[in-house]
Amino acid sequence: MPQWLIDYWALMGFGPTGWGLSMLRAAGMTIAVSSAGFALGSVLGALAAWGRLSGSRIAAVISATYTTVIRGIPELLVIYLVFFGGAVVLGWIWRTFWDGEGFVSLPAFVAGFIAVGICNGAYQAEVFRGAFRTVARGEIEAAAAFGMPRALAFRRIVAPQVLRFALPGLGNCWQLCLKESALISVTGLVELLRQSFIGGRSTRDFFSFLLTGAALYLVITTVSSALFAAAERRALRGLKRA
C-alpha cells in the first residue's frame, strides 16, 4: 500500500484516533437535517402553490411574496435569521401569550431544518405550481361532471398527477436542499461540512477532510438521484412519452 493511503487510513479510519466514525455520523446528520428540511419545504411549497392557485387574492400575494423574497436572498442570510432571530421571536411569543417564564430555545438542528425548509419551500412551490398546470383541465372537468366532490377529485385526480409531474423538479429541490444543508454548519450543528472543518482544523489537514467530506456528499447526491430516478420511472410508467 502506498504511504499516503496508509496515512489517510490512519486519519480517516475507524481506529481510536481515526475520524471515520465521526465523518459518517456527520453524513447521517446531513441526511437527517436535509430530509427534515425537505419535508418542511414540501409542506410550505404545497401551501404556497395552493395560495397562488386558490383564486384568493390575499393568499396569492402572500405566496408570491414568500417565493420571490426567499429566492432572491442568500440562504446563509435566512439561516442567520432563523438561528439568531427564531429564539427571540419564540421567546417573546412564549412569554407574551402563554405567560411562560424563561426561554424557549431552538436547538441547532431545528433552527437548521426550519431555515433549509423555508428556502426549499420557495423552490418547491414553483415545482408544484408547474406540475399542477400540466394536469389536464379536461380531467378535472370530467371529474366534476361525474359529480365527484372537489376534495375527492383533488385526492383522486389532481394530487396523484401533480406528484407524478412534480417528481423530476422535486429531485432537483432535494439536491438543492442537501447542498444548502452545508450552510447550517454556521449554527454549530455538526453536519458533514462542519465535521470536515473541525477535523481539518484539529489535524491541520484540511485537504483530506474536505475532500472526504466532498466525496461523502457525492455519494449521497448520487444515491439519492438514483432513487429519485427510480421513483420517476415508477410514477411515469404507462405514461406515453411526448
Binding site: L210, L211, Y217
Partner: peptide, 18 residues
C-alpha cells in the same frame, strides 16, 4: 454539481494553502 459550493470554497482556500 454534486458537492456544496461551501466545501469547494474551503477546499480552495484552506485545502490548497496547506
Amino acid at each position: 454539481r454534486g458537492t456544496p459550493l461551501a466545501i469547494q470554497m474551503f477546499l480552495i482556500y484552506f485545502g490548497l494553502a496547506q
